[in-house]
Simulated scan of single mutants.
Amino acid sequence: MAAAVALVATWEGLRTVAYRDVVGIPTVCFGETRGVKMGDRYTVDECKAMLGDGLAEFEQGMRKCLKAPDQIPAKSYVSFLSLSYNIGTGAFCRSTVARRTNAGDIRGACNAIPAWNKAGGRVVKGLVNRRAEEQKICLEGVAG
């Protein structure tokens, strides 16, 4: 979980006051959008706790749609959790990443990560960069 917290925190960044993300969704802390209203404020410690709780929740959802989550290499698992946190459990579970993982093709799943580079229907440079890092870490897991 520590590796997932570090990866997600790095890419989401920390903002203690609610702001609108690139597609206008109220967001706060480390990319939290659920229940966020403009004007919301949190302390750094509250944001860290929110990230930990959020990752645990997204991990539960992600594990439900994976046939053998405990057999996924650790680095690949962390990459999948970062992706799930960012795109949502439903989108992750319907993704080629999840389908390939369930078919036993972890490398193929890793190589499907970069497709998730859009927000609001347009390619976002930050997502391109994040997906490249998630894919790199994922493939490191496959390589051993």
Results as ranks from 00 to 15, higher is better:
A115S: 13
R122I: 14
A112Q: 06
Y19A: 09
C29R: 03
K118V: 05
C29I: 11
C93N: 07
A6L: 11
A3I: 01
S95M: 06
L66D: 04
T101N: 06
F30P: 01
L83P: 00
G35E: 01
V5T: 13
L127H: 04
Q135G: 02
T101H: 03
A68I: 03
E140G: 06
F30A: 08
R63N: 14
R34D: 13
A143D: 14
L127Y: 06
V97W: 01
A18Y: 00
A132Y: 05
K48A: 14
D53L: 13
R34N: 14
Y19Q: 09
G24R: 08
V8W: 00
L14E: 02
G120A: 11
A112C: 09
V128M: 09
L55A: 12
F30Y: 15
V22L: 15
F92L: 10
G126W: 09
W116M: 05
N117Y: 05
M62L: 15
R34G: 12
D53P: 00
A143Y: 02
C65V: 12
N102H: 08
K48D: 13
G126I: 12
E57R: 15
V128E: 14
T43M: 09
K67Y: 06
P114L: 10
R15V: 04
K64P: 04
L14K: 08
G31T: 11
K136Q: 14
A49F: 07
D53A: 15
L127R: 02
A119E: 04
Y85S: 07
D21F: 02
T96M: 10
F58Y: 15
R130I: 07
Y77M: 12
G121V: 07
N117T: 04
L81H: 07
K64T: 13
Y19H: 10
G108H: 08
V28R: 00
F80S: 01
V5F: 14
V17I: 12
G13Q: 11
E140K: 06
L83N: 00
G104R: 08
G120Y: 08
A98M: 08
L127I: 10
L139N: 06
R131Y: 07
G126D: 11
